[in-house]
Design a protein around this nucleic acid. Structure first.
Length: 599
RNA sequence: GGGGUCGUAGUUCAGUUUGGUUAGAACGCCGGCCUGUCACGCCGGAGGUCGCGAGUUCGAGUCUCGUCGGCCCCGCCA
């Protein structure tokens, strides 16, 4: 960098600095060559400052500036000068001043960038990921990176203040074949054996509690070898914390304070705490999902008992078959055309409904659609139940309860977007509690843990473990915000006998349990304290905080949908010597011949 | 594992429906002019294996099959 030493960053200079000398270093963002005057917008992660080269001051320097290309890294020594009247740029924090160049040093040239670093960026995701180092220079990306840092810092500060210890748990962990697929790491020293990269620090943090490390946290990478989505990456980061001698209220209190700290640090917003709580069964009934967006109403209304005797055969037969009839009141949408309604019905069918019944509200009664099948008493019940008024349209779905919930839940969110019912600056947190501990897996013909098998059943449900597992509610909770699951946690099982009973429900033999989780079961026998915790997803928190559509850009180096890293080309081929050392032999995947069943 | 969609200049796209002369635009890049611009402006120019491979056809960016890659959805994600 020659004899030059940076005095300010590119977002720092103000008119108070006028008259002083300054040295700036950064990237050539834009050039404007007016023939005589030559302007450069010099950019670093703090901002942009205009540098001006004047031929009258130094013609040699002016000529040298003309050689600069986009994204050259340069150092400029010059005089901070207030801009002449009428040339102030009000859109730039540094817009009242410019740096009049006296000395220019090219620290490194740059090839012409493959895409223009502009906002909003026009380049494809593919190109941006291949040249991630260029993409990261964009102010938008810098804001996301900074937001992530600020959130992480606020997390450490808050949890430390609350008496938590930051403890790292292993990345090379025991493979416990449950849940998602593991990323597997072969052991060289122990041929044929593998480590697994952790899907979460779950077991280690429980054992930390047994180890007396009350109040642990970790900003932990979690790895899952499953297919990707716009909000799913093979590695994601959780703010994982666990506490001993606590109940749900203690965990909630810490989490609420944590969210408050993060929102305050990143956005300057003050979240209202405590967050409201909603039982799982109520969430499913009223919102059709266990991660409801409660920023708006449009709640699902159950009409099953009111329509039990309905003349409308579809409803009556569904109810007789044990199903339910529920509806949404699309307020003010009675103006929908037949085509509008058909569009909604097509959506409903896509989500599994057999149809979408409707009726418009007019003159205090129901009109059109299925209204002619409704008795006076039923009309009154529908209007009262939905609090409908003239100009509304009621949308009904009749089916098995799970189907109705899914369809109306999805429809509710679709209407939110179509009718612009929410604003981006609004954050509605909700605790969803009292989840069932087990779900019946139709295909496997077995009970499965709804969340994971280390969550404590409610005490009053313990006796149902062997008799009616489907009725057992767990001390499980999710933190939901704006329709996203932001965190998931539970009060854990701290007694071996209960843990073994739960494992038995999900079909795990004593021998299996011992082979996979013996170390945990053993630990539980040595004075494991009652404990519980939560794991908020950092990527999703940043996504919501910044209004991003997915988590990908909240991560500095993300993977594509197919799990590739386009910048460095991983995953990549492996040398034969490496395989030999690990005792691994690759086999060609067998390609089935034409007409042959691939099985 | 299944489905949808896209792939054309350095980039973002149009052109593909209905195969047919020399594949266009904008931005970027290069050259020229320009002393107050900040998406500078004006003039000119270069730049293409139409992802890749087969096939159909007198003829393929356009049709067919395969393949690779991006995005999105279902399954999956305790």
């Amino acid at each position: 960098m020659g004899a030059l030493q940076r005095t300010h960053n590119c977002g720092a200079l103000r008119k108070e600095d006028a008259g002083n000398e300054a040295v700036l270093m950064g990237w050539v963002h834009h050039r404007r060559d007016l023939g005589g005057l030559f302007f450069i917008d010099l950019r670093d992660r703090h901002g942009t400052t205009q540098v001006v080269f004047r031929p009258d001051d130094d013609s040699e320097l002016h000529a040298k500036a003309g050689e600069l290309g986009a994204e050259y890294v340069i150092a400029v020594r010059g005089e901070v000068s207030q801009r002449p009247d009428g040339t102030i740029n009000p859109d730039l924090p540094t817009g009242e001043v410019e740096l009049v160049a006296r000395e220019l040093l090219v620290l490194n040239a740059s090839l012409t960038p493959p895409f223009v670093l502009e906002e909003p960026v026009k380049a494809s995701d593919e190109l941006r990921l291949e040249y991630r180092y260029l993409d990261l220079r964009r102010p938008h990306m810098q804001r996301l990176i900074e937001a992530r840092h600020v959130a992480a810092h606020a997390t450490r500060a808050y949890l430390t203040e609350q008496g938590f210890l930051e403890i790292e748990t292993p990345l090379l962990a025991k493979k416990t074949p449950e849940g998602a697929r593991d990323f597997v790491v072969p052991s060289r020293v122990h041929p044929g054996k593998v480590y697994a990269l952790p899907q979460s620090p779950q077991l280690y943090k429980q054992i930390l509690m047994v180890g007396g490390c009350d109040r642990y946290f970790q900003i932990a990478r979690c790895l899952r070898d499953e297919d990707l989505r716009s909000d799913r990456q093979p590695e994601h980061t959780q703010i994982d914390f666990e506490m001993s001698f606590v109940t749900e209220d203690d965990v909630f209190g810490v989490a609420e304070g944590l969210m408050q700290s993060i929102w305050r640090a990143v956005r300057g917003d003050e979240l209202t705490i405590p967050f409201p709580r909603l039982a799982y069964r109520d969430a499913m009934q009223r919102y059709g999902t266990d991660k409801p967006d409660v920023r708006f109403g449009l709640e699902i209304v159950d009409l099953t008992s009111a329509l039990r005797e309905s003349e409308f055969k579809v409803f009556r037969s569904v109810i007789e078959g044990g199903g339910v009839v529920r509806c949404l009141n699309a307020s003010g949408c009675a103006g929908w055309s037949r085509k509008d309604i058909d569009t909604k019905e097509a959506l409903a069918k896509k989500w599994g409904a057999k149809g979408l019944a409707w009726a418009k509200v007019d003159g205090g009664s129901l009109m059109g659609g299925i209204s002619r099948f409704m008795s006076e008493g039923e009309v009154a019940a529908i209007i009262e139940g939905t609090a409908a008024t003239d100009g509304d349209i009621i949308l009904f779905v009749a089916d098995k309860e799970a189907t109705v919930a899914r369809v109306l839940g999805n429809l509710r969110v679709a209407l939110r977007d179509e009718l612009s019912l929410v604003s981006a600056d609004e954050f509605a947190f909700t605790w969803v509690t009292e989840f069932p501990l087990f779900a019946w897996n139709e295909d496997a013909g077995a009970w499965e843990a709804e969340h994971h098998m280390f969550s404590m059943p409610r005490e009053q449900d313990l006796e149902l473990l062997e008799t009616d597992p489907g009725k057992v509610l767990g001390r499980l909770y999710d933190l939901v915000c704006n329709g996203f699951e932001l965190a998931s946690g539970s009060i854990r099982i701290h007694r071996r006998d209960i843990q073994e009973r739960v494992m038995k429900v999900v079909g795990m033999s004593a021998a299996d349990a011992d082979r996979r989780f013996g170390f945990l079961l053993k630990a539980l026998e040595y004075g494991a304290p009652p404990h519980g915790g939560l794991a908020p997803g950092l990527d999703r928190i940043i996504m919501i905080l910044t209004g991003e559509a997915g988590i990908r850009d909240t991560i500095a180096f993300p993977k594509t949908y197919s799990g590739l890293s386009l910048m460095d080309g991983s995953p990549s081929d492996v040398e034969q010597e490496v395989l030999d050392e690990l005792g691994i032999r690759l086999v060609e995947k067998r390609v089935p011949a034409a007409g042959e069943n691939d099985d």
